[in-house]
């Protein structure tokens, strides 16, 4: 077998391409077809059913439609920033998947600081949001960009503090280490072993993380950076055609990245009976995605000041309490 840096680089490139392609496929299915079907199920409708089996060919139709539209560049946009912003947003979310163990050996890199890395790259998206909002030369975009920053600031900290409580349990930031730490059996009920997934070990942290994650990915009740009925489309108002696709894509990849993080640090990663690990992993990610869609169909949107209040006065306090409590418990028991 050949060896050397060139080979390693090539191997990494192929692996990344495979995972990125798989992800984009997943987004295409769930974002274009799944979203329609799920929302329809929640709202007593049928949705697409005329394009191929189960309306699946809508994916092709939508792709053609979106990509063949005219790219309208409004007058007075700040050109390089306006062009880069969608790429930054989509790219940052994709980068996060590099360290996620997806089971069956699908794991591109496993650095020691895996979890910190995921949060670091995921929050680059905020930069993209500000760029988009500020460079669009549109007041709605500006309002949306500002809202996005305020929201991400308010929820990133509780998110990371809650994740830190998991790190205290696992004793490592390495993603594979966190997954391994959840492999043991917590307790057995009638012969069926309940694994020590951190969602079972510390359900409080799990709920907190799920809520903060909704804000992080900008879904109801925290979809205020876009808030179509208030500020039209927020930061993405002026994007059309391919750039719109990138914005849309980045949102869905972010939801899946959120799902992947939750699956990894709370739901035992790819662990699960009978089915191969990667299938379990996709199922867990899909469950989180379903949850966001459910919230979108049923929960009202909070106001920006209420959101900030919930973030700084509620979630932050709770997450710190959770962190301290976890540290005390781990300190006593271990």
């Amino acid at each position: 077998m050949p060896d050397g840096p060139a080979f390693e680089f090539l191997a990494a490139l192929i692996a990344s391409s495979v995972i990125a392609a798989a992800l984009l496929g997943l987004v295409a299915v769930s974002g274009i077809w799944g979203k329609r079907k799920i929302t329809a199920a929640f709202t007593d409708r049928i949705a697409v059913n005329r394009h191929g089996p189960f309306g699946l060919l809508i994916i092709v139709a939508d792709a053609v439609r979106l990509l063949s539209k005219e790219l309208i560049v409004p007058e007075g946009v700040d050109r390089p920033a306006w062009d880069i912003a969608p790429i930054v947003m989509a790219g940052s979310a994709l980068l996060g998947f590099a360290v996620i163990p997806m089971g069956n050996g699908l794991h591109i890199a496993d650095p020691e600081v895996g979890l910190a890395y995921v949060f670091a790259v995921a929050s680059i998206a905020s930069v993209g949001l500000v760029m988009a909002g500020y460079s669009s030369n549109n007041k709605y975009s500006l309002l949306g960009g500002l809202r996005a920053v305020a929201q991400n600031l308010a929820y990133e900290i509780p998110l990371i503090l809650t994740a830190a409580s998991v790190v205290i349990f696992a004793g490592t930031l390495r993603m594979s280490g966190i997954v391994e730490a959840q492999a043991t059996t917590l307790f057995s009920v009638a012969g069926i072993g309940i694994p020590s997934w951190y969602a079972f070990v510390n359900p409080f942290a799990f709920v907190l993380f799920m809520a903060a994650n909704l804000a992080e990915v900008g879904r109801n009740p925290f979809d205020i950076p876009e808030a179509p009925t208030e500020i039209v489309g927020g930061w993405q108002t002026e994007y059309s055609s391919v750039y719109f696709v990138l914005c849309y894509l980045s949102e869905f990849i972010h939801i899946f990245l959120g799902g992947a993080i939750i699956a990894t640090i709370f739901l035992g990663g790819p662990a699960g009976p009978v089915l191969p690990g990667v299938v379990w992993f996709v199922i867990k990610m899909g469950a989180v995605y379903l949850f966001t869609q459910w919230a979108r169909s049923a929960v009202p949107r909070v106001r920006i000041d209420q959101l900030i209040e919930i973030g700084w006065k509620g979630m932050l306090v709770l997450s710190i309490a959770n962190l301290v409590l976890t540290a005390v418990i781990v300190g006593i028991t271990v």
């Binding site: 929640f42 709202t43 169909s297």
Partner: peptide, 18 residues
């Protein structure tokens, strides 16, 4: 009104339309 507060074509909107 639900559409304005919820921000999307939510369940409530479709139920009321029905």
């Amino acid at each position: 009104f639900a559409l304005d507060v919820y921000g999307d074509f939510t369940a409530i909107f479709m139920y009321a339309m029905q």
